[in-house]
Amino acid sequence: MKGMSLIVKRITRYTVGLILLFGIYIVLHGHITPGGGFAGGVIIALSFIHLMLAFGREEADKSIKENIISFGEPVGGLMFLSIALIGLAGGVFFFNFFASKGEPFSILSAGIIPLCNIAIALKVASGLFGVFVVLSLFRLSGDKKTDEIKK
């Protein structure tokens, strides 16, 4: 997959950081404003996809390592599950163990919910970016360029 024209590359250089920042904002403010882990994770994945579409695979490989996919997906899932399991110490699955601390409407509030949001965002971002990479770059064996893509 080759990159796009000079105009697209130049504009991507300016916008991709803002998109990534907006995704992180949506994730971290998930318990205060609309949004949350899933939507923020998809926005983060879209910023990676933006980079990869504009610059092509070879250039994008320098800034995005594909290990991030195999790292983020299981780590996000395990983090979410372990937060749920820690709740068992308080009695029930998904027990909100420090909900009593923090004021409502501030960033540090709502107990485990920001942690869960971060875990889900990690999982969703790496998972959907992985699906995009696999569907758009890998070829089925009937296609011509099977060997070219193989790593």
Binding site: G30, H31, G36, N96, G102, P104, F105, S109, A110
Partner: peptide, 11 residues
């Protein structure tokens, strides 16, 4: 009062 999250959907 229980979760202390302003966004009820996330709560």
């Amino acid at each position: 009062s229980q979760v202390k999250a302003a966004n009820i959907v996330t709560a």
